[in-house]
Amino acid sequence: MLSRLVVGLDGGDTGSRAVDFARKLAARMEDCELILVYVIEWSPFSFQTAEENAQRHRRREEEIDAARSRIVTPAVEALQSQGVKVRGLVRHGNVSDALDRIARDEGADLIVVARTSDTGVASRIFGSSTANLVMHATVPVTVVG
């Protein structure tokens, strides 16, 4: 039976730790697909100027292209070269909501993320993405230390 793991990328070392862990996990499973996800933080409730709105569609494409070429595709290719079954996704939105939704839509068995090192006032008040994911996810979550 095919199992799917959703892995959260952040373009840095933290995300790589999650990918490493997911790769090892997948290797132990019979038939496993990794879905690497990079979420571009975005809120539909932010305030923008009229000009920004008019250019938004183009900017969004540019953001997706940049995330693909710089973060997701290199990670996917690295795993593919090791024979891992893997694909990548880029989404806009809130990190924890987006990861959870993708996991549900894809019928994933597990979400793997790394512990974030968010500090500062904002994360004290609103919590880090990882903490939010753990609290609200509808799919099991593994947090890599």
């Binding site: 571009i40 975005w42 539909p44 932010s46």
Partner: peptide
């Protein structure tokens, strides 16, 4: 509120943003 917004359109101009921009004028 975004109840009718397709989640796949995330990152595009939302109804809220269009309204907020018009209001600021």
């Amino acid at each position: 509120k975004g109840d009718y917004s397709d989640p796949d359109d995330a990152g595009e101009v939302s109804h809220f943003q269009a309204l907020a921009t018009a209001l600021s004028g």
